[in-house]
Amino acid sequence: MTTAIEIRNVNKQFVLRHTRSMKEAFVWLMKGRKGDLSERFHALSDVSLTVEQGESVALLGFNGSGKSTLLKHMSGVMRPDSGSVRTRGRVAGLIEVGAGFHPDLSGRDNVYLNGAILGMDRDEIEAKFDSIVEFSEIGQFIDTEVKFYSSGMYLRLAFAVAVHTDPEVFLIDEILAVGDEPFQKKCIARIRELAAEGKTLVVVSHDLDMVAKICERGVLLDHGNVLMDGPVRDVIERLRSN
């Protein structure tokens, strides 16, 4: 099989600040607290993972386990402190609501902007524009500045653009929780279509019942470490037993 995503010995740390101002730092020291006013948080610790083309994988775990951080490395939003992340083909998806959107531009302009960011050329965007707007269900607001959009409208337009990029790898981070139920069902149906077309899917979600229906494989993370990698229902059972 062809490898779509290859992650090798990835490490990522963040610096957590205990104070936000000189005044707070002074109070900290006056109270006798010594040492560094920050600490390092290991978000990912020597993570290795391979996803084959056409696989549907759920990244599972409790808050702070490293799921979203790992997904952002796959998307290229983040770079590891050490180790490597390689992807094959066009990568698209939904990591944050409105990511890649400019608030002062209209929905129309943002379709072109976001499409270009996701690797589409102008001719491709123009050919798919009507379909994108139809899927998003925000036709009457397409020429309104997106800073006036609700989070649900952001989601609908962002998802519509992403699924029309025809990606080889599609990444989703809990974002479906933002939309209303009818649109969530519509998105899930489209995700299933992508899976049936042989696209590679990586999903982060706390909705275990949903990922059990969409994904075949599960990867359980805990404090930046991979605890289990196997059939999604087995991984869900392990998570629920904790």
Rank of each mutant, 00 (worst) to 15 (best):
S45R: 08
I175V: 14
I175H: 08
I138T: 02
D173T: 08
V232A: 13
F62L: 15
L194T: 01
P231W: 12
L221H: 04
D36P: 14
V97C: 02
D46V: 01
T19F: 14
G152V: 02
I175K: 11
P167S: 09
A92W: 05
A99F: 07
M22A: 15
L113V: 14
I236R: 13
I125P: 10
F159E: 12
D207M: 09
R8V: 09
H18F: 15
A43L: 13
R17G: 04
G179Y: 03
G54V: 13
Q53K: 11
K213H: 03
M74D: 01
E134F: 02
L194Q: 04
N242V: 15
V146G: 05
N110M: 12
K186A: 11
F141Y: 11
K186T: 07
S151K: 03
V169G: 06
N114Q: 10
D143S: 05
R122K: 10
G115L: 07
E197A: 08
T144Q: 13
P231G: 12
K199G: 08
K199M: 09
L49C: 06
R233C: 14
F148L: 06
Q140T: 10
F183Q: 00
D234E: 15
F101A: 05
I117H: 00
F101D: 02
K67A: 01
L171Q: 11
E181G: 00
E181H: 06
S38L: 10
E181L: 11
I191C: 08
M120H: 07
S241I: 10
I214F: 05
G83A: 08
L220A: 10
P103T: 10
L94A: 01
I7R: 00
P231N: 13
G179H: 02
I138F: 01
V27W: 03
T87N: 05
V91W: 12
I172Y: 04
H18Q: 15
F129M: 09
R238S: 13
N114C: 08
G218F: 05
Y112V: 04
I172W: 01
D46L: 03
D81K: 04
E39L: 08
V178W: 06
E96T: 03
D207K: 04
I132R: 01
P182A: 00
V15H: 01
R190Y: 13
R90N: 09
L16E: 03
Y154D: 05
I95M: 12
G76E: 07
G83V: 02
D130H: 07
R238K: 14
D81Y: 03
I132L: 06
V211R: 02
E174F: 13
G76Y: 04
K31H: 15
S136G: 04
L118P: 09
F129S: 10
S106H: 06
V204Q: 02
G35R: 05
T3F: 09
V27L: 09
W28S: 13
Q184K: 11
G93F: 08
I95R: 04
I95N: 07
S136V: 07
V51M: 11
K72V: 08
Y154F: 15
E174W: 14
G230H: 12
V77A: 08
L221V: 04
S151M: 06
N11G: 05
F41R: 10
H206Y: 13
R79A: 14
F183A: 01
A43M: 10
